[in-house]
């Protein structure tokens, strides 16, 4: 790990001033230190965002919904009573992230901006496309954990559990830079390799995530988060599904299905949402929605299993959210 200067940024404005191409933000540090130690990045300056106490908050009101400061830790999110009450699926998604120690350290903003866990990307000796190199090693290599959707010259999957859960609750993200503050739906924040192969989101090197906001769920909203992973601690998803269904009796008024670990971005499934919206939820409807969610999936040499796995998981999540036995 190359040496660097460590500077506190007590305000967003100060952070923006301090940032630049040779600087990196540090919040929880759980991903950043890994990248530094692996030699994937070697910034000259770390800008410590934790000095900015104003970004550490968690507020809920029925009229405004939930507002999360970017520095809220995952364990604060996991244990908060209002979150558990109004966004139980979010708490459930957080509970299966990494390990208790990581959740004590890691922040909401950091989780959304973490870099991919692709084992080729994480190996400093392999100059892959995501690092600006010529090849994606996953194409001819061990790609059992890689993308079945949305890949293009790079086949990482987005590692966040938080992102699919937040997107299913229609979260918006606010971030600030020299040009001022922007707010947009979280789904639009993430970009695939066809747009930018070396980054996973729109955040520029001199911008700072400030807040995530979620509307108050309508009455009858039920959410389910399902995650398959090799080990029950630490592991990123082999596959995950966040499902939010607004139910009116047995009929679904509105649905949001978002998949994790299938694509370089958290993967919304609007086609599945369409199948569900207005439909009476039955195992057959859930199956059709699952098929729709995976339409266009193109497995690689070792990850064909992810297609049936994803379909099974989507179907299961829908039925569980709707309270229908399979």
């Amino acid at each position: 790990m190359r040496n660097f200067e460590f500077v506190n940024a007590p305000t967003t404005e100060r952070a923006i001033e301090l940032l630049g191409p040779q600087a990196k933000l540090i919040a929880g540090g759980t991903d950043l230190l890994d990248e530094l130690k692996e030699g994937l990045i070697a910034p000259e300056r770390l800008v410590n965002l934790k000095a900015n106490r104003a970004l550490k908050y968690l507020r809920f009101s029925p009229s405004e919904g939930l507002r999360l400061g970017a520095l809220t830790t995952l364990s604060e999110l996991e244990t908060d009573r209002t979150v558990r009450e109004h966004y139980p699926m979010l708490a459930a998604a957080v509970r299966v992230i990494a390990s208790p120690q990581i959740r004590n350290m890691a922040t909401v903003g950091g989780n959304l901006c973490q870099r991919p866990r692709c084992w080729y990307y994480r190996n400093d000796a392999l100059h892959c496309t995501r690092k600006g190199g010529p090849i994606c090693y996953a194409v001819s290599g061990e790609n059992q954990y890689h993308a079945i959707l949305g890949g293009h010259l790079c086949f990482i999957v987005h590692p966040s559990d938080l992102a699919p859960a937040l997107m299913a609750y229609d979260a918006r993200i606010s971030y600030a830079g020299p040009g001022g503050r922007k707010t947009l739906p979280l789904g639009e924040f993430f970009v695939g390799p066809a747009v930018n192969i070396t980054r996973e989101n729109l955040l520029q090197p001199n911008e700072v995530v400030e807040e995530i906001s979620l509307p108050t769920p309508a009455a009858g909203t039920r959410g389910v988060y399902l995650k398959v992973r090799d080990r029950n601690t630490w592991d990123f998803a082999t596959l995950s599904v966040a499902a939010v269904l607004e139910m009116d009796g047995a009929t679904c008024r509105r649905a949001r299905i978002v998949l994790g670990a299938v694509a370089p971005v958290p993967w919304p499934a609007p086609d599945a949402d369409k199948v569900l919206t207005g439909a009476r939820i039955t195992p057959e409807v859930a199956r059709r929605a699952a098929d729709a969610a995976l339409r266009g999936a193109r497995p690689m040499s070792h990850n064909a299993h992810k297609v049936p796995l994803a379909k099974n998981l989507v179907r299961r999540a829908i039925l569980k959210a709707a309270g229908v036995s399979p």
Partner: peptide
Amino acid sequence: KPVYSCLTLAVD
């Protein structure tokens, strides 16, 4: 609170 000291900078 339990944290990982390997992912914590001493200055931090």
